[in-house]
Design a binder for these strands. Structure first.
Lengths: 262, 262
DNA sequence: CTTGCCCACTCGTCTATACGAGTATGCCTC
DNA sequence: GAGGCATACTCGTATAGACGAGTGGGCAAG
């Protein structure tokens, strides 16, 4: 067994009433924060930590699970425990749906990703009519059935976002919006062509821990929350014409908004 | 030992290659989702689950720790494990800093909380001059020293938000802004009186797991992320006059924004 | 009736052990 | 050199047991 790099980790304080596994977690956390373990670096193995601190393996694992739930490290079966690298962050500006961004042939996501030097991808596209839920109805009005457009966005192969758009059937049925590929400028461009000139959007932002299916879909490491964003689009007549429900890997996003001081 | 309520929890599938502790977590999660354990209700004790599933206690604890990290349950030493009740959610509207909300004698937080029938509280107020950090300087301009105003907000005794405002010294020094209580309408009202008419705010929203000190300050249950909001206020001359760094308990907030479709 | 203690029950912490499964490396064979 | 295999090391899962500490109810003493 390789020796632990000296000086990186100290000793336990047996007089402290802080639990041993917390003390170990504290030391590792501090070492990470101070850069003694850099991003992507491998922590000492459980066996090494066990020996260094003179505790049992379960105690060490307990410590590591704390760091994992804090999102600081992630373990890889058969390889080790690593300081979690921060993925490049995608910045969503509040003008991202401005009309002037909508005339390109490509989607906003594609344009932006390529500008950032990343390889964008959209998959698991599903377009179907389905029954509205109470939440959707509350936002969209009383439509009993809606058109649902589901898709997942990836950057450089990593899933970052999962979104579903809901539109009233009387607007979307038998239009390009009901096609898998709605064409240049996306569904907002199509909505305006259909006479629904967009006036404003409402966005609601929440953060929470992901449900198990979201962990799977977004391939989330443990300790990574999700941002849950629900956007409602209104046309100039004040009608809600689309609700978009988005779940994003929180470590891959920062949302930027500009508020008037009126 | 009390018998387990029959029918609430099923049996394990020994043929499944899903780990036993995950199967147990799945069953408990499903029971919670379907309302078989209601909000605030006590789950079966570790001993009961141990007996029901015929596994060791550590396996049961492992299952419970999953649910805990998902924010579904929280354990109380000596009492049991309980389905985590959702605290009332505070909705932050994007017009919350509008000038028309600023002329009352009370702070926005107080007015809003009392309207919602809650008991608002502000504590751990600290106002001091300190050195600027690179992050603050990048937003505020090159001020080397800044006035920092720190405070914590509570609703019905529960901490929900921790915020620090940073202002350039040349604006804030020797003004009511440097007082613990800046007076009616808060520091934005004072800034305008000092000739800095506010033009707009930039807000950046992130979500992440809390650091240990944030867990303490906000008394966060495990499995609750924080929303990290950084707001920069600009006056009509385009100068950044305040940066407000806020950390919020994510389970207590929903942020609402309105975006023009321009 | 009230006070105080005991006890049963709860979760928290820790040890020691065992086996399984994924990964990487180096050596041996061809 | 290429391929395949053995092996050592990694984390994952699970058991059994021990003691500690917080909580709450009941019982006994006052």
């Amino acid at each position: 067994m390789a020796a632990l790099p000296s000086g990186v980790l100290g000793a336990l304080d047996p007089t402290s009433d802080r639990a041993v596994f917390r003390q170990i977690a504290d030391q590792l956390r501090e070492a990470i924060d101070k850069g003694r373990f850099k991003e992507g670096a491998k922590l000492p193995s459980e066996a090494e930590l066990t020996e260094h601190f003179g505790v049992s393996r379960m105690t060490v694992r307990n410590s590591l699970s704390i760091l994992q739930s804090e999102g600081l490290v992630s373990s890889e079966h058969g390889r080790g425990v690593f300081v979690r690298p921060r993925p490049p962050v995608r910045r969503l500006a509040s003008d991202r749906f401005a009309r002037r961004h909508r005339d390109q042939g490509k989607s906003a996501f594609t344009v932006e990703a390529e500008a950032a030097g990343s390889r964008p991808e959209v998959d698991s596209l599903e377009v179907r009519e389905e029954r509205s839920t109470p939440e959707i109805s509350a936002r969209l009005g009383s439509a009993r059935k809606v058109l649902a457009r589901r898709r997942r966005y990836l950057m450089d192969g990593k899933p970052v976002e999962f979104a579903t758009s809901y539109l009233p059937l009387d607007i979307a049925r038998n239009t390009p919006i009901a096609e898998p590929n709605p064409g240049p400028g996306g569904i907002y461009a199509r909505l305006e062509e259909l006479g629904h000139r967009l006036e404003h959007f409402d966005e609601e932002v929440r953060a929470r821990m992901p449900a198990p299916d979201e962990v799977k879909t977004l391939r989330l490491a443990s300790g990574v929350p999700v941002i849950h964003l629900v956007r409602t689009a209104y046309d100039t007549e004040g009608r809600a014409v689309e609700v978009c429900d988005t779940v994003m890997a929180a470590d891959a996003y920062v949302l930027a908004y500009q508020l008037p001081a009126t």
